[in-house]
């Protein structure tokens, strides 16, 4: 009976400290470790946010230094160099004017625009851009024709001569020309906040300067005044 009493007293002496140790250890696993993990997670978020803020601040500073008006003009010009849609009449105007300027007779001009949307284009150039092919036949002296050919590749919208066939006879020459102009959709990553601000390289500036000297014609503009006659409404009889 006395032994039972002793065990009860001893048990009381040990139970509180042991339970304290047990609950403290359990609390370390249930409270402290998740809290520490949370702090580490927050810390990595802070580091990422600091980096992002640095990037965004630099981008905002770069954007502040841009000349919006000049850029808009450049954009309009660039979209004429490689347009996003197939503006067939622009090319018809261009070839007519180039022929007049080079003093050659434009005897034939064939354009097959196909799908006029750039989103589902089929034909692509070696440069990976969608193309708008032209077949042109010009007549004139050899020198005038060669001048016409050189002007084609120095015009806006940009064009490349893929085939040039010349036949001479009786002092006159006749040349068949296969050219192609380029069409491209707008870039996909337009104005994304986190994308780094693109910068124009020295090479881009040189290309721009070069293109500024290229010939460009507005649709409907001709070197000689145009005369109109006959019906003006295509639906009236």
């Amino acid at each position: 009976m006395r032994k039972v009493e002793i065990i009860k007293i001893r048990w009381r002496l040990f139970v509180i400290p042991l339970l304290t140790i047990f609950f403290t250890v359990v609390s370390v696993f249930l409270v402290l470790i998740p809290r520490v993990k949370m702090i580490l997670q927050l810390n990595s978020q802070v580091r990422e946010s600091e980096k992002r803020l640095g990037r965004l601040t630099a981008k905002a500073a770069d954007l502040e230094g841009l000349d919006a008006v000049a850029l808009k003009e450049r954009r309009d010009f660039s979209l004429r160099v490689v347009p996003q849609t197939k503006n067939v009449m622009e090319f018809v105007t261009l070839f007519s004017n180039l022929a007049q300027n080079s003093q050659v007779y434009l005897s034939s001009l064939e354009v097959s625009p196909g799908d006029i949307s750039t989103q589902s284009g089929i034909v692509t150039s070696p440069e990976g851009l969608e193309i708008l092919p032209f077949e042109v036949i010009v007549e004139g002296t050899r020198e005038r024709i060669l001048d016409f050919i050189s002007q084609v590749e120095k015009s806006i919208p940009l064009m490349s001569v893929r085939l040039f066939k010349i036949a001479e006879g009786g002092g006159a020459a006749r040349a068949q020309l296969r050219a192609e102009s380029y069409v491209a959709p707008l870039p996909k990553n337009l104005g994304k906040i986190d994308s780094p601000l693109v910068k124009l390289s020295q090479e881009d500036e040189e290309v721009f300067k070069l293109l500024e000297n290229f010939k460009t014609y507005e649709v409907g503009w001709t070197s000689t005044p145009a005369s109109f006659s006959g019906r003006t409404d295509p639906f009236s009889f």
Binding site: L66, A68, L71, K72, R74, R75, S78, L79, V81, V82, E127, L129, L158, Y182, A184, L186, P187, N189, L190, G191, L197, V198, K199, L200, E203, D204, V207, F208, L211
Partner: peptide, 13 residues
């Protein structure tokens, strides 16, 4: 505008 200019000048180049 800048992204478009860059894209077109790269293609033209």
């Amino acid at each position: 505008d800048l992204v478009i200019v860059k894209d077109r000048l790269t293609q033209a180049g």
